[in-house]
Amino acid sequence: MKIILPGRLLLLMIILAVIASCSKDGNSEAAPDTANNGAGGSLARYTIVGDYLYLVDDYNLDVYDCHDLANPVRKSSQQIGFGIETIYPFRDKLFIGSSNGMYVYSLEDPTAPKLEGSVTHVRACDPVVANDSAAYVTLRNFGTTCGGSENVLNVYDVKNVQNPRLVRTVTMKSPGGLGIHRSALYVCEGQNGLTVFDISKGYEPVEIRTLKGKDYQDVIPYNGLLICHLSDGICFYDLSDPLHPVEYGTVKN
């Protein structure tokens, strides 16, 4: 009995997390890839959009004005739920993943994100990425921190963000961090590999291939590259053909 009682509970509440990556799809690529705009992975809790930093802890979404980077000023803080895990910016929206659902916030007023829509799902870990028409959420039950019961990729129709609609569920082995580049969706499955889906056909992701041999945790599609967060470092793939990533270098110890 080495159980740590409150620790166990806290583990549940903590639920390791996620972010927001500025994965680019075809359309969004034009704007962000400048010298001033970076991108994070789908497991992030901090993300920068313009001059604002958005961060989520377990319950809250906080906004900091970072026009003066040496002096971030908190503009707002709102309690948005329980078990918040990840934040992902896409255009003028934030997609926020929690252990029991996905929330979409409008950044019309960048200092005070406004809830536009949400959808609940079974309890699980759930990074989220999105493009103009769909949001992709992975739910996983591996590990001890998530409390989930499924290992799936969920596809939501978000054309009407007020009412995201679950349109497809794909069973996977151990889905985690994910990213979108043009017509490709990349889903990290730890030691089970990196699975590439063709998402050009509406809401029906077609599995194209699974890259093996590394422990994939998360990805950032960026400037034609797929940057992978591995459990022991990083590696890079060329995305000239988004459905056929070609490996470049690796950084480990």
């Binding site: 970076g38 994070g40 992030a44 998360d218 950032i220 967060h229 022991d232 470092g233 990083i234 110890n253």
Partner: peptide, 26 residues
């Protein structure tokens, strides 16, 4: 890199968290 954490990229640089210790700049 021992406990590889979250990543962020900007320009030609990749920033990776070493969990609870700091950030690698690559």
């Amino acid at each position: 890199t021992v406990a590889a954490g979250k990543i962020y990229t900007l320009g030609n640089r990749l920033y990776q968290v070493e969990n609870s210790k700091g950030i690698h700049i690559i």
